[in-house]
């Protein structure tokens, strides 16, 4: 993972090109799998952007994801598609600002609980709105996209997300985030505006998450709150990022790929026990390798040498 940028960039570009070309050569079913996987790679990477270094565990992922999908459902016939995406990003950003301003002062488990509650609140609010104000129970998304079109958009978003994560990691902002994760008091006394940094990262992370939901919306065709605000999305994102290691650039992506495939298989093979297995996996990962697999591998390598 410590490749020199001079090698890493061409390699990343080549991998991206291969991934982009893949739908032209593989069956639609596998394009669908790639699509779902890319969605989770982006979600986990975007989640870790904020939650990795600050250690503020957010369960609000699906709140933003669902809002993104809903904005597309509401606006897809009213506006040109690029404007629909832009509106989704803008609304996600505003929601993140409001949430961030009111919650980033909460610490530890209070933040976790609040973000979980937030996702539920947003879902209930949207349901109530649809039932009582607009009198619609669900909405149709009519956009002329096939799986591979959605996949390409997600792939581009994944690349952008990784690029943002890479750039932040090398910047002052990245250093500030790590310091905040270690000790907010020291960070503040070193001259860091802790609240602003946290807010900024939360907003960037949430906006990217909102866009994942927005881009994936056409895949469902029919959208209702219980579909797009499914809390499993938040938990899966969290587990994936933790498995791979939320403090590393490629960590969340490397956690997302195997887990997505595993979840795909589990949800098909054991649909009734899916939640239980998810919960057990979660506990296992947190106990066995709280820093993620990459750190675990590093440890083992170091241990082997010492």
């Amino acid at each position: 993972m410590t490749m020199k940028p001079s090698i890493a960039f061409p390699v990343a570009a080549a991998v991206l090109a291969v991934l982009a070309a893949a739908p032209l050569f593989i069956p639609d079913y596998w394009t669908g799998v790639l699509l779902g996987m890319t969605g989770y790679v982006t979600l986990a990477t975007a989640w870790a952007l904020f939650s990795g270094p600050t250690r503020y565990v957010s369960l609000a992922t699906v709140a933003f994801f669902g809002v993104g999908a809903y904005v597309v459902a509401v606006l897809n016939e009213a506006l040109p598609y690029p404007l629909v995406l832009l509106s989704a990003a803008g609304i996600g950003m505003i929601l993140a600002l409001a949430v961030g301003l009111s919650t980033l002062r909460l610490a530890g488990v209070y933040f976790v609980i609040f973000t979980f509650g937030l996702a539920e609140l947003v879902r209930q609010t949207v349901s109530w709105w649809e039932v009582n104000i607009t009198y619609t129970m669900g909405r149709y998304v009519f956009l002329p996209f096939e799986g591979r079109h959605i996949y390409w958009q997600l792939l581009a978003l994944a690349a952008v997300t990784l690029l943002i994560s890479w750039a932040i990691g090398r910047s002052r902002l990245g250093l500030a985030l790590k310091a905040i994760g270690d000790d907010e008091v020291v960070a503040a006394h070193a001259g860091i505006d802790v609240t602003r940094v946290k807010l900024l990262l939360f907003v960037i992370s949430a906006t990217l998450i909102t866009l994942v939901g927005a881009i994936q919306a056409p895949r469902w065709t029919y959208i209702e709150p219980s579909i797009v605000f499914n809390p499993t999305v938040s938990f899966m994102t969290l587990i994936m990022a933790l498995l791979g290691g939320p403090m590393r650039l490629w960590g969340p992506a490397l956690g997302a790929i195997p887990l997505f495939l595993l979840f795909e298989w589990l949800s098909v093979s054991f649909p009734d026990h899916f939640s239980i297995i998810l919960g057990l996996l979660f506990i296992l990962i947190v106990f066995v390798m709280p820093q993620g697999v990459l750190a675990k591998i590093d440890d083992i390598r170091k241990g082997g040498r010492a």
Partner: peptide
């Protein structure tokens, strides 16, 4: 109060 995830140099760089 050293910052444990930063190196010695990064602590100062901060």
């Amino acid at each position: 109060r050293p910052l444990p995830t930063l190196t010695v140099g990064e602590n100062v760089l901060l």
